[in-house]
Write a protein that binds this DNA or RNA. Structure first.
Lengths: 231, 231
DNA sequence: CGTAGGGTTGAGGTTAATCAAGTATGGTGG
DNA sequence: CCACCATACTTGATTAACCTCAACCCTACG
């Protein structure tokens, strides 16, 4: 695994010139963990943050009653835990590897030094945190203002037609996580997700086969997702 | 109104030395608006952000169906809209003055220049955004994982015993907004909030008189809020 | 006074959680 | 190769929390 390559994949650092990337690479540590490994717990003091090189990591919160809510699933090139670096109050969530995973760890102290000298990177971090904030706010009022079918439709639509327009030829996407994880991410239970998928399938908007989802009617799905037309 | 004084009240700038504050003060514009004025709309291009000097501003999102969700109410010394400055994608929410309000406006361009030269301030902004992120995540999984009574208890407890421990002698606080605004902030409807207050009152945890809330049983309220003991 | 807005109270309806049973699927060990 | 088990997912029936709609109260204010 090439560290610099991974760093460059990360939105936070993708605009950095080669020599700066090289300096950054000197600060980091590689870390290989197996499925189920807990990277950090809510409240743990934050000694740095991570970028996923291979595999995936679930970031989630636990209610006092033990119910879990998945904030995000980090996949290769994505970072997690970076917000905690600046607040200095410990991690606000749990993180656990969903499969055998290769990570890059950026220690807090040396990373902050690195930042101090590079306003450009700091600016990039500010943009990155703003994005997180945006995403979380979106997630939140989705969960509050929209019903389950709408939430699901919105997730599927943006998976298929925005974001890193990935492996889909026409409208075929693969869910980036298990359905029970997705259910928690969308603030619903697995039975509810199952039924919501069935309903959207019944409306001929999608076709489901395990984690493979085919979007049959993009416009219909967009309507269901209550997303405004773009032009 | 003294601009520098207001800037210093804002957590983002409270640690700045006097001369830097002076420079910052040169960039800003005062703005007086009357109750009901819309400061910006969701999607508007972001040309800067605000700090409240006097009054209060409601920041909220609207669902396509027209339902409103109040993200926060900014009061004197608090900033809003700052996240949009960095993302460069327009404001993610609406903002409207709840009363006649005095504002300080920091224009995007000159503020970014100001930041560029001052890593310390940038670092502070990073911490500030992290705090926002934390608050939003907290709000979100409150709304998702906790029932209405718990949400309300949590809000009241933190209002009375953390935050800017304000005008309360023992356990008396004033709700910082109308009840219908609070209801939306806590992701419930006014009738539901009303009943929840009645229930907590019935359990002798609080006493309500208009916007004045007296906390009768702090420990009981903390238990109801499912907040872990601190020691 | 009379009206308007915020707030409360009551009855009824709906969404999604819960609980429980049933159906694949994949891995493991005999 | 097959029996076994664990895990993910689905399906069904019931329940409960909260929303909705409506009437009503109250205070402020013209």
């Amino acid at each position: 695994m090439d560290i610099q390559f991974v760093l460059q994949q990360c939105p936070l650092f993708s605009t950095l010139p080669g020599d700066v990337l090289e300096q950054l690479a000197l600060l980091v540590r590689k870390k290989a963990v197996s499925r189920g490994t807990e990277l950090f717990r809510q409240g743990d003091p934050c000694d740095g943050f991570y970028i996923v090189a291979e595999g995936s990591v679930k970031v989630f919160r636990l209610s006092p009653a033990g119910k879990e809510h998945v904030l995000s699933v980090a996949r290769p090139g994505q970072s997690f835990g970076e917000a905690a670096v600046f607040a200095g109050e410990g991690f606000p969530a749990f993180a656990e590897a969903l499969e055998d995973t290769l990570l890059i760890f950026l220690p807090r102290g040396s990373f902050l030094e690195f930042l101090e000298a590079r306003p450009k990177v700091a600016h990039r971090m500010l943009a990155g945190l703003s994005q997180w904030l945006r995403r979380m706010v979106g997630l939140m009022d989705d969960a509050i203002l929209a019903d389950v079918d709408t939430r699901l439709a919105r997730f599927l639509y943006s998976l298929a037609f925005s974001g890193p327009a990935k492996n889909e030829a026409e409208g075929k996407v693969t869910l980036p996580m298990q359905k029970q994880v997705l259910a928690s991410h969308l603030a619903m239970t697995p039975p509810t997700l199952s039924r919501a998928l069935t309903r959207l399938e019944g409306e001929r908007l999608i076709a489901v086969r395990d984690l493979e989802i085919e979007v049959l009617d993009p416009d219909g799905l967009r309507d269901r997702a209550e997303i405004a037309e773009s032009p």
